[in-house]
């Protein structure tokens, strides 16, 4: 499925009132534009991890996604989870002779 599409749709839906959250992909449309400068550090860190710096177009998209992710990160705080609740992950302890 178009992951982006669903997330965009999700964000659009939420921007209509359900919660103050915008997912990646619907950045400028729902909540106004972020200042470019606040993502310069993050983009520089991302560029440093890549073999080649992002093109201008990819960089613009990455910046929009970063803005969306920041909003999600902020918005998730509105969802109260039980204190100390465990993440839904599994790890089975293995015997000492199992190496992988």
């Amino acid at each position: 499925m178009p992951e982006k599409v669903s997330r965009r749709q999700f964000a659009r839906t939420l921007s209509l009132g359900a919660a103050a959250v915008v997912a990646p992909g619907l950045v400028g449309a729902a909540q106004g534009q972020e200042k470019t400068e606040q993502f310069e550090t993050a983009l520089a860190e991302i560029d440093a991890q890549l073999h080649e710096k992002l093109s201008d177009e990819a960089r613009k998209i990455a910046q929009e996604n970063l803005a969306g992710s920041r909003r999600v990160a902020k918005g998730r705080l509105a969802v109260k989870l039980p204190e100390n609740s465990e993440p839904c992950t599994l790890f089975f302890a293995s015997s000492k002779d199992k190496t992988r």
């Binding site: 991302i46 990455a62 998730r76 989870l81 993440p87």
Partner: peptide, 22 residues
Amino acid sequence: VGGFASALDVKAVDYLWALRFR
């Protein structure tokens, strides 16, 4: 390209929140 690159920036606490939310 922009999407995968920006995803390198996702924070561990955000990811673990998602797994706790599940």
